[in-house]
Amino acid sequence: MPEIEIQVPAIEVTDLTVAYNEKPVLWDIDLEVPRGKLMAIVGPNGAGKTTFMKTVLGLIKSAAGQVLIEGKPYTKARHLVGYVPQRGSVDWDFPTTVLDVVMMGSYGTLGWLKRPGRQEKDDAFTALEKVGMAKFANRQISQLSGGQQQRVFLARALVQDAEIYFMDEPFQGVDATTERTIIQLLKEMSDANKTVVVVHHDLQTVPEYFDWVMLLNVRKIASGPVSEVFTENNLRLTYGGKVAFLSHHEAGEMFEEKDQ
């Protein structure tokens, strides 16, 4: 790899503003995430955490600003990105198996018309082994517990063999075993110089799990190494007081409008 690429941040967001019907839900966000970081995005409900992630992934159009993945716009860097959406965003009664869901991770590189074959199946098994779900491969997905569902989603993203992973609340409603499995995996990924961005709810575990953090509440309050920016003062700016409540309230309403 040419040396110059190493200096390019994994994720570079400049002046990103997102609005629903001219009402801003994200204001002028600047963010730089160096490669190999394990980053949490924290903020109150409706602060725009999921919106931010979806905008970076090109799922939501921004009103202004730009996003660079390894120095390239998202459409040109898609193969570098893996995504773990919120577990609750899909219908788990869908008629499909664990293995099949995990193989969906290979659809992006397969291209039109091609079906997943031997190679893709092996990759899916490897990914399932990593999350400790190999023996569930042929299980119907509705028979999984919440934690198992989350691990299946994680395995699907692993199949993408990406450089940067975006995960939307992977710890939401999962059991302790799953939480440990996931965090261990995230650490391994980070050690392998992969960048992982996680929307996270549990403030208590931030210092333990992550080395980088962004505090978000419609605008970016702070971002950087956990030891530097995860301070009481910044948290108060993000969550506390009337200000936070108002923005939470408004942004929440906007979400509802958009979701339906």
Binding site: D15, A19, E22, P24, W27, D28, A63
Partner: peptide, 10 residues
Amino acid sequence: EFAGRMLTVH
């Protein structure tokens, strides 16, 4: 109006 505000925020 929104673009103007966006600019001031920036």
